[in-house]
């Protein structure tokens, strides 16, 4: 386990262990975890906690790193919270090469800037797209559908959802 000094909080969610670290320490923590055997970064993503009443969140964006130890088959989720516009966090593509595209996707979808990434461009959306689609205040879009009560709600995702 990484040194307790890095860990802010830890727990288990539905059977999956997780730890929280401070955002500036993410690179350090992941590098340490890699030497401890968590050699595979399964995925990296983000959750937008805008208007989320389920608990009090330290910040709006939660960046999630799912790690796996291929020998012992243990899994660990590393979480960190960031704020700002745009939010910044260190890139970890040098520790885990598959993070390269995952970080580009997270940038594309949430507008999170990964400092130190070699080529932080949009990956899924067209290059001239405006906005970050997976943010909660970005409307689902599409066209209104007759006889559907819910469509209006989708359009204004932030406070009603």
């Amino acid at each position: 386990m990484i040194s307790e000094t890095l860990i802010v909080e830890k727990g288990v969610s539905a059977g999956d262990p997780w730890v929280t670290v401070d955002a500036p320490k993410v690179h350090e923590a992941l590098a340490a975890l890699k030497t401890e055997g968590y050699t595979l970064l399964v995925f990296l993503s983000c959750v937008d906690h805008l208007v989320d009443a389920s608990r009090s969140w330290p910040a709006r964006y939660e960046v999630v790193y799912q790690l796996r130890n291929m020998e012992t088959r243990e899994q660990l989720r590393l979480r960190t919270f960031i704020e700002g516009d745009p939010p910044h966090i260190d890139s970890v593509h040098d520790v885990f090469p598959p993070a390269n595209w995952d970080e580009r996707e997270t940038y594309d979808m949430f507008g999170i800037v990964f400092d130190g990434h070699p080529e932080l461009t949009r990956i899924l959306m067209p290059d001239d797209w405006v906005g970050y689609p997976l943010r909660r205040d970005y409307p689902v879009g599409g066209e209104p559908v007759e006889f559907s009560e819910e469509h209006e709600m989708w359009q204004t995702a932030p406070d009603k959802a």
């Binding site: 959306m125 689609p133 970005y138 409307p139 689902v140 879009g141 599409g142 066209e143 559908v145 469509h151």
Partner: peptide, 12 residues
């Protein structure tokens, strides 16, 4: 028509 995907990413 866009099918089940009534969203920003697809041409409707």
């Amino acid at each position: 028509t866009g099918g089940v995907f009534n969203n920003y990413a697809l041409l409707q």
